[in-house]
């Protein structure tokens, strides 16, 4: 009896150890990432900091982006705001599009910098597919990234191989630790603000 118990316990502990080791080790972070899990535009010493945590498949994220993008761009241009974007994956019940799109943003950030990543971010929301049904493939993401200013030769491999998958997943975990319940989650100067209220505050920048 004791031997059987010992074997069972050893298998359980070994299994847990294996699961933990799969998720440990250094996470590959894209070059040009500003904070650990995001990318920024604007001056570091701008008076207001806006952080936007979004899933590329989330309709509320697309409408928030549509409502605030121009104002944010103007505020960044005028030196009034620094904006940090965090791509996360919460809509994985609808397939892997969210993860592929977020990874693609990481690849574009890595190879072409935050300005191009932001343009890609804009285009992903403008061309957002429906939550249910067929989703665009990697070639579509690559075309859209190229349209946004990335070079196909630099990004194809990273997009097809999900190069920054763990970076995105760790970023999603970090967003949850900060209190994210759904997307978009907006922080203004470090305080979580409901999206509607955030849009009002951004309009007043």
């Amino acid at each position: 009896m004791g031997g059987v118990v010992a074997v069972v316990l050893a298998l359980i502990i070994g299994g847990v150890w294996f699961q933990i080791s799969r998720n440990s080790g250094p996470v590959e972070t894209p070059a040009n990432a500003s904070s650990e899990y995001g990318f920024s535009v604007g001056e570091d010493d701008a008076p207001t900091e806006v952080e936007i945590i979004a899933d590329y498949l989330c309709p509320a994220c697309a409408s928030f982006e549509g409502a605030t993008d121009e104002q944010l761009a103007a505020a960044v241009e005028a030196g009034k705001a620094k904006v940090t974007y965090f791509p996360v994956v919460i809509l994985d019940d609808y397939g892997d599009y969210s993860a592929r799109a977020a990874n693609a943003v990481g690849v574009v950030l890595d190879t072409a910098g935050p300005e191009v990543a932001l343009e890609f971010n804009r285009n992903l929301f403008a061309e957002q597919p429906a939550e249910a049904g067929n989703k665009p493939d990697d070639d579509w993401l690559i075309d859209l990234a190229v349209e946004s200013g990335a070079k196909e030769a630099d990004i194809r491999e990273g997009i097809e191989d999900s190069q920054f998958e763990r970076w995105i997943k760790e970023g999603t975990q970090e967003a949850q630790r900060r209190g994210m319940k759904g997307t978009p989650t907006i922080f203004i100067d470090g305080k979580m603000v409901d999206p509607a209220a955030a849009a009002t505050q951004i309009a007043a920048l």
Binding site: I12, G15, V16, Q19, I20, R22, N23, D92, K169, T172, Q173, Q176, R177
Partner: peptide, 28 residues
């Protein structure tokens, strides 16, 4: 395992320090 950790965290019962361990261990 990330999904399992997310599920454990969502209950808002356990402290963050043990959430990843429980999320990794529970499926096993």
């Amino acid at each position: 395992p990330y999904e399992s950790i997310t599920a454990v965290r969502a209950y808002e019962i356990l402290p963050e320090a043990v959430v990843p361990l429980v999320g990794h261990a529970l499926p096993i």
